[in-house]
Nucleic acid binder design. Structure first.
Length: 853
RNA sequence: GCGGACGUGGCGAAACGGUAGACGCAGCAGACUUAAAAUCUGCUCCUCGAAUGAGGGUGAGGGUUCGAGUCCCUCCGUCCGCACCA
């Protein structure tokens, strides 16, 4: 019994594909293009099996589309800037560039061993000056278009990484990588004006019909559009107007107070003269921003003893507070409180003994008796206690108030967004230098284009904390490009999401002297199928959508969206193990004793924990090299595709990979030791081969149709199941029939072609064994014979009163009355009918007869 | 709190509103082996029955329909995203 020799085979076919340049992409205007892309990796070290699931999916799609005749672009590169490289430098004395290059070499070799059909001639690495110089140019263009600006603002400071984080990078009050509680700091930072496109980014989501609904919703929530009004309140005792944003202008007559953010300019002004207020504000700043801190934080206000004049009724006054729950970053940094119709305002009003006046009357309530208890009324109703609004619905009242405010100049209807501009400054070395110079006389001066790229210095030390660029003895000292006086370079670098916001464009013309050739981008873009993790739903995916718009505005290209199709794959999970001390163990460190109990290598007990996403920190990872060494790339690829729907998590198990290995050998044996001698490749199948063999041919052709459909819909697990079904049918083929060999041969050729995108090495080996010409990688996708996928006979089920009672075979598309007659004549059915005619019979052609008695 | 997804055998999962459990894993029995591994054959949702078979079954309850895992309503549970957002 022969075993499939994957070691020999996989290396051989990888070399053959490479020699023939099978996967090099060339622009070709007459062929339809297809751009397949997997989110490019950060070169963090070595790949484990969890990393390669999405590359396997991408490769399957790339090879499938190529077989279908598309001109496929399928590139790979490295998101090479980032903190782990710097941390390695701090910990191990290795330069980030060296560490990164070594990791790239390792991971590239791992990907190549998997046999992925990449066009390696387009490989890019974002830490190379020939890459990042182009984004420095983009930044200068953004500056010119006012898409980039510098501003002092409160930012998220990660005390572990010693750098600023964007809002998108703060998850539940913690840094997205470090997990450290984020602090607020006031810093001067470069920002990209993503909010210029808030509306457009939101609207265009509707057109992304090949994106998961979930991701679109997440972006929608993140952009957070709220319709409402700005309302200006004059202060009774100061020559100051406080502008508030509200989504409920209809409840203005229920206003009980105004509340300012502790960082509101007027609050800060007052604090200058009021030390108690200054202390209150300082206290607010000390409070954490984490979920727990916010959840438990008391809603507190500081009464300023100042009154504001009600904009709709100048005789009314409301007190002005400074309150810890008002955010400076959203709306205008000030609110008006209507306790009757907002729960938080109600809590605040009860605490500070403010009046609670309902102005929206619930249906069927009596205005004379309706009052608010502990719960604010937030539903729809009819306005009352509200002057000219009385009797209106909530939505009519919103419009009426808007019109009144606009006419009086006291406010206007407007839209607020949750989305804030993208802060891109990072106080780190291993990133793209921001190409500006700070001149004491001229201020901020962009680096002239001819001086690009601003390259990172190589000679840096990581012995002290903080940004090595800032400490470098010479790098930052330059002459001002305008006035030549001694100046300093910007020492911050870009957020690494800057690089990943346009790399897909660079792939279109990866060696161009400019960022990307316009016609290449116009040909290949948008990405037809993008594949990656859902964790980038509002990070990379939103930034890239912004970049396309910003680049369009700067004249780089004409494109609406970067990614036409998006697929977010599930994680690969594995059981976790801990010893009695709570230390995590690698799966290979765990054994079981004769009694079946789990132990470590020294025999001490081990506790099996939850099944979780593979991660280095919990050590529940399975190295890719070990798996490919033992089972080969195709077995790993098959397992990753076979057991779970691609969007769902996949559990990696030893028995699972062994099962895949069995299938690989089974497939190989089918061609290396066929159950029936195969005729030569040019043999023809006779028109009539008998019922049993025709049945096998039908399954063969139905499998083509089914697998094609499954791959189109990303149902890779089902495609695998269909291939197994065909395998089972071919194994059961009646060997004694005269034309069995020819039918088997047809089946095996089809099977091989269908395996091509999934297990490409095995497919080539089988193809060669079958004596087929050329390479599977260069062979067109099979077509199902329409005549063969239509059965001549169908099995029809018979239900009586909704219960399945019998099935019978009948010619396809037989007349309904004949089907009914045969169904009712069945002994199981006639017995139930007891000679009475049925009340009703529903017939679904070729499928079911439903009898009602 | 707001928004969303999901709930099917021992397990991973299939199922245009039309024969629930394809395909695989694990398990059981057998064949081949001195033996094991590998491989092959058969069985495997539950209950009753020797068996043809009968009854029940897709988180719970209700509804629409000739027919519901699938559609609608209520509830329970799990997971995910956002969250002092005015």
């Amino acid at each position: 019994m022969s075993r499939y020799n994957f070691r020999e085979s996989e290396a051989k076919w990888q070399q053959r594909w490479s020699e023939r340049g099978c996967f090099a992409a060339r622009q070709d205007p007459v062929r339809p293009k297809y751009y397949v892309l997997e989110m490019f990796p950060y070169p963090s070290g070595k790949l484990h099996v969890g990393h390669v699931r999405n590359y396997t999916m991408g490769d399957l799609v790339a090879r499938y589309r190529r077989a279908q005749g598309y001109n496929v672009l399928h590139p790979m590169g490295w998101d090479a800037f980032g903190l782990p490289a710097e941390n390695a430098a701090i910990a191990g004395g290795i330069h980030p560039a060296v560490w990164t290059a070594e990791n790239i070499a390792t991971m590239r070799a791992q990907l190549q061993r998997m046999g992925f059909a990449y066009d390696w001639s387009r490989e890019i690495s974002t830490c190379h000056p020939q890459y990042y110089r182009h984004e420095q140019k983009m930044f200068l263009d953004f500056l010119a278009k006012d898409l980039a600006y510098r501003r002092e603002s409160w930012v998220n400071w990660d005390p572990v990484e010693n750098t600023v984080l964007a809002n998108e990078q703060v998850i539940e009050g913690r840094g997205w990588r470090s997990g450290a509680l984020v602090e607020k700091r006031l810093l001067s930072q470069w920002n990209l004006r993503i909010t210029r496109y808030s509306d457009e980014l939101l609207d265009a989501l509707k057109g992304l019909d090949r994106w998961p609904e979930r991701v679109r919703l997440m972006q929608e929530n993140w952009i957070g559009r709220s319709e409402g009004a700005r309302v200006r309140w004059a202060l009774a005792s100061h020559d100051v107007t406080i502008e508030v944003f509200t989504t409920r202008p209809d409840t203005l007559y229920g206003a009980a107070f105004l509340a300012l953010s502790p960082h509101h300019p007027f609050a800060e002004e007052l604090a200058g003269r009021d030390s108690t207020l200054a202390e209150f504000i300082a206290e607010c700043d000390r409070a954490g921003t984490s979920e727990e801190a916010i959840e438990t934080a008391e809603k507190r206000g500081y009464s300023t003893d100042i009154e504001a004049i009600h904009p709709l009724d100048k005789s009314r006054r409301v007190p002005v507070y400074v309150a810890n729950f008002v955010l400076m970053e959203y709306g205008t940094g000030a609110i008006f409180g209507c306790p009757a119709h907002d729960q938080r305002d109600l809590d605040f009003a009860r605490k500070y003994k403010l009046p609670v006046v309902p102005v929206v009357l619930p249906p069927k309530e009596d205005p004379a008796t309706f009052s608010i208890g502990d719960t604010a009324y937030v539903e729809d109703g009819t306005l009352f206690n509200s002057s000219f609004l009385n009797g209106l619905s909530v939505s009519d009242a919103k419009r009426a108030v808007g019109e009144r405010l606009e006419a009086a100049g006291d406010g206007e209807r407007t839209i607020a967004y949750r989305l804030r501009d993208w802060g891109v400054s990072r106080q780190r070395y291993w990133g793209c230098p921001i190409p500006v110079i700070h001149c004491p006389d001229c201020g901020i001066v962009p680096v002239p284009e001819d001086d690009l790229p601003v390259e990172l210095p190589q000679d840096v030390d990581f012995d002290q904390s903080g940004n090595p660029l800032d400490r470098h003895p010479t790098w930052k000292h330059v002459a001002c490009p305008c006035c030549n006086s001694p100046s300093q370079r910007e020492t911050d670098t870009f957020d690494t999401f800057f690089e990943s916001s346009w790399y897909f464009l660079r792939f279109c013309s990866a060696r161009a002297p400019i960022a990307f050739e316009r016609d290449a981008a116009q040909y290949w873009m948008p990405v037809d199928q993008y594949i990656g993790g859902v964790e980038h739903a509002v990070l990379h995916l939103l930034y890239s959508r912004f970049f396309i718009r910003a680049l369009k505005e700067c004249g780089y290209l004409d494109l609406d969206e970067p990614f036409a199709g998006l697929f977010t794959q599930g994680m690969v999970c594995h059981q976790t193990y801990q010893n009695a001390e709570g230390e995590w163990l690698f799966p290979e460190e765990v054994a079981s004793d004769p009694a079946g109990r789990l132990t470590d290598e020294t025999g001490r007990p081990v506790i099996a924990g939850r099944n979780e996403k593979m991660s280095k920190s919990k050590k529940n990872v399975v190295g890719l090299d070990a798996i490919v060494d033992t089972y080969g790339a195709d077995t790993a690829r098959l397992y990753l595709m076979s057991n779970s729907p691609p969007e769902r998590d996949l559990e990696w198990t030893e028995t699972g990979i062994e099962g895949a290995w069995r299938q690989v050998n089974r497939l190989w044996r089918m061609v290396s030791e066929p159950s029936v001698p195969l005729p030569p490749p040019d043999a023809v199948i006779p028109d009539e081969v008998g019922a049993k063999l025709t049945g096998v041919r039908r399954i063969t052709h139905k499998t083509i149709a089914a697998v094609t459909d499954d791959i189109d819909k990303f149902h890779f697990n089902r495609a695998v199941a269909r291939i197994y079904e065909l395998t089972n049918a071919l194994e059961d083929l009646p060997a004694e029939a005269p034309d069995a060999g020819a039918v088997l041969r047809e089946g095996l050729i089809t099977l091989t072609q269908l395996l091509g995108p999934m297990m490409p090495h095995l497919a080539e080996e089988m193809w060669q064994e079958l004596g087929q010409p050329g390479l599977v990688a260069e062979t067109a996708w099979p077509k199902a014979d329409a005549a063969l996928i239509r059965d001549e006979h169908v099995t029809i089920a018979v239900q009586v009163n909704g219960k399945l009672r019998a099935t019978f075979d009948f010619p396809r598309d037989a007349p309904a009355n004949e089907v009914e007659k045969s169904a009712l004549a069945l002994p199981q059915i006639s017995r139930l009918l007891e000679g009475k005619p049925p009340r009703k019979v529903v017939i679904v052609p070729n499928r079911i007869v439903s009898v009602v008695t």
